[in-house]
Design a binder for these strands. Structure first.
Length: 697
DNA sequence: CTTAGGG
DNA sequence: CCCTAAG
């Protein structure tokens, strides 16, 4: 419409000219949106960081906990924690990577926890932690940042069982505590683990084992947890500190954006993709590497073409590193294991009733399980003498991931996914620990082994071990194929991210957690818009935080990580490219309208004016679209493809194109003050002040 | 970061 | 859509 007016009256241009560029601030806003996507990833990192912090602070706790030892954990406490957590966690931590992740995670956890947190029971192992949780809450909170608290809480929740309470997820918490306590040293790692995993995982993850590199030793913990093998991990995971930083920065941006309520824009995605694609990241370790890495300590992932060896040296890697930590300290593949989580039974809550939930944490590789779950006590068996176990998460052996600084969070995620996938695909097998001892006799019954008794359930643990056998990972049955030992598909790894395509592209922000899961299954793209919208809404509030955890405590994680990963992995490469989103007629209309008013050459403004909320349309996209529209308008209708654009719009395109081309030409030539007229209008637009007749309207 | 263009 | 060279 405007356009017409313009045509009719040259003056319209006038109005156009009035248009000004949006203030920078606005511009930022747009960008901000884009960031959101990253948030997810960040979440992990954040979690990891959180975990780290928690651990650190937790140390103190741990000690206290240890002392408390058997205390019962009370659910209530958890709640408290949550509250605290809510308060700050994110922000504070965000500064550090951890915080962000944590926040995210936390939220998720919280949810779960809350659920679980109904009744804490205590378990022996858990006891240690519990005290912390239970009593600690307050104390902990004091010591720990909110975030930490939060994390802890989560852990507790996860561990609920250990206390005997909740779903029996308590373990996580305990683990954390343990980790912390013992390790002060490497809480991060633990944290990471925790993050990765569910609460359980956290608990599961044993710091001690994890420590291998870091050698975290869990004094108090150690007892309960067998640590033996952790040593293997080396954890070499290095996350580029830089990455982290960057991420942080990004993250921060994201967070801001989130506030804005927009999903990360494509731009970031792009960057990420670029990075990924480009040479920089090589993250995904390959199975072989994995092994090696494990042995060595780090897996090197190759990403695509480039080599990706990440050195710990660089900060960049730190980021990855952290992630890895999240996962576990271990190598990329396994470590965090978030991937590996398995929920045996169901939600803890339900389980609680009848089942005993045992959560097991896997350490993999040599790791032992840190704790188990505890579930509710007695009832577990209730049903038929079935032993019900709830494994919230498995710890993955450490993965070594290197990512370029420039890598986006999304890329990092992918990388991790790939690594995990590869790991899973490869040689992991599950080990059962009872009373910290490995149960080697597979032929024995649970009853015989003592696993059926509640008492033992607490002492039941599962570990992921690098197994000679690849097949054996029951847990990840779905993924088996993945095995991409690195050799086979370094590149594949990339693809592992695959889902990403959709995710990355379309869903950057939205996709986050839940979406991820779904995404794997669903094509996100189509939903993208919706997603974004959702994202917007969510973003501010929950998304950033919740995503990570929200969807899934343990279960979801698995689903997400595992399944999707596999699929994605192969495609990873392509994934990078944004999904194609043909412009709808309405979009074209909006574009034409905006261009008529603003002219060509001010794509940022066009974007702001007509696609402010279309995060998936960048100004570059608009410019490109305009280019194609102009082309389309010039060719015969028969030659046109795709959704037909109304001729009326094409006509306007041509008119606007001609009009603005002229303007540009004039400008270049420097407006000669000669004749104005149409020119005038142009001049206005350009901001040229011409003595224009006073035409109003 | 934006533009402008080529791929 | 992507990628890049130039502002």
């Amino acid at each position: 419409m405007v356009f017409k007016k313009r045509l009719d009256y040259g003056f319209n241009a006038f109005s156009v000219s009035n248009v000004r560029r949006a203030p920078r601030s606005i511009r930022k806003r747009d960008r901000t949106k884009r960031v959101v996507e990253v948030s997810r990833i960040c979440a992990f990192e954040l979690l990891a960081s959180l975990a780290g912090k928690l651990l650190e602070e937790g140390e103190s706790f741990a000690s206290s906990n240890a002392s408390a030892g058997h205390d019962h954990v009370s659910v209530v406490k958890d709640v408290e924690l949550e509250t605290q957590y809510d308060d700050k966690p994110l922000k504070t931590e965000c500064v550090e990577h951890v915080s962000c992740d944590a926040s995210v995670v936390t939220s998720d956890w919280t949810t779960e926890n809350s659920d679980n947190s109904k009744e804490p029971k205590h378990s022996e192992n858990n006891a240690i932690l519990e005290p912390t949780l239970t009593k600690a809450p307050p104390a902990c909170s004091e010591k720990i940042n909110d975030d930490l608290m939060y994390t802890i809480r989560k852990c507790n929740v996860g561990y609920g069982s250990f206390t005997g309470n909740l779903d029996g997820c308590s373990p996580d918490f305990g683990d954390l505590c343990d980790d912390i306590s013992e390790n002060g040293v490497k809480r991060e790692v633990k944290a990471n683990n925790c993050l990765t995993m569910d609460p359980l995982e956290l608990s599961m993850t044993f710091p001690s084992p994890i420590n291998s590199d870091r050698d975290v030793k869990l004094p108090s913990h150690s007892d309960s947890v067998p640590n033996a093998s952790f040593s293997r991990h080396r954890n070499d995971i290095k996350l580029g500190s830089r990455d982290d930083d960057e991420k942080f920065s990004r993250f921060n941006k994201l967070s801001n954006r989130f506030k804005v309520s927009r999903p990360a824009t494509l731009i970031e995605d792009r960057r990420i993709r670029k990075f990924l694609t480009s040479k920089y990241w090589k993250a995904a370790p390959k199975l072989k590497d994995f092994e090696d890495s494990q042995a060595d300590g780090g897996i090197k992932a190759l990403h695509r073409k480039q080599k990706t060896y990440y050195n710990y040296d660089k900060c960049q890697y730190d980021t990855l590193y952290k992630r890895r930590k999240f996962f576990d300290c271990s190598s990329i593949v396994t470590s965090d294991g978030g991937i590996g989580n398995e929920n045996v039974s169901n939600s803890p809550e339900k389980v609680t009733n009848k089942n005993k939930c045992h959560s097991v944490a896997m350490s993999h590789g040599a790791c032992e399980i840190a704790s188990l779950l505890t579930g509710h006590q007695a009832s577990h068996k209730s049903d038929d003498s079935h032993v019900k176990l709830s494994i919230k998460s498995f710890r993955i052996p450490e993965l070594y991931i290197e990512v370029p600084e420039t890598a986006t969070v999304g890329s990092l995620k992918r990388t991790v996914m790939e690594a995990v996938t590869a790991l899973l695909g490869g040689r992991i097998h599950v080990g059962v620990l009872l009373q910290e001892k490995k149960v080697r006799d597979d032929s024995r019954t649970l009853l015989q082994t003592g696993i059926s008794s509640e008492d033992n359930l607490d002492a039941l643990g599962f570990t992921l071990e690098p197994g000679p056998v690849i097949g054996p990972r029951p847990i990840f049955s779905e993924e088996p194929p993945l095995q991409l030992p690195r050799g086979s598909a370094p590149q594949n790894l990339t693809s592992s991210l695959v889902v990403t395509p959709a995710l990355d592209t379309g869903i950057p922000a939205a996709t986050p957690d839940p979406p991820l899961l779904t995404n794997s299954a669903k094509p996100v793209d189509s939903n993208y818009e919706h997603v974004s919208s959702q994202t917007d809404m969510l973003t501010d509030q929950n998304l950033s935080e919740s995503r990570a955890l929200v969807p899934v405590p343990a279960m979801n994680v698995e689903a997400l990580a595992v399944v999707p990963v596999n699929q994605k992995i192969r495609k990873s490469e392509l994934a990078q490219r944004r999904t194609r989103r043909p412009f709808s007629v309405s979009e074209v209309e909006a574009l034409v309208q905006a261009v008529e008013e603003l002219g060509t050459g001010r794509w940022r403004d066009v974007k702001l004016r007509a696609f402010e909320n279309a995060d998936h349309r960048t100004y570059v996209d608009l410019k490109d679209k305009w280019k194609t529209l102009v082309h389309t308008a010039k060719i015969s209708p028969q030659q046109r493809r795709g959704e037909p654009v109304p001729q009326e719009l094409l006509d306007r395109v041509m008119a606007a194109h001609a009009d603005w081309s002229q303007h540009q030409a004039k400008q270049q030539g420097k407006h000669h003050p000669g004749t104005l007229r149409i020119t005038d209008s142009q001049a206005y637009r350009d901001g040229v002040v011409v003595a224009i007749p006073t035409i109003t309207m």
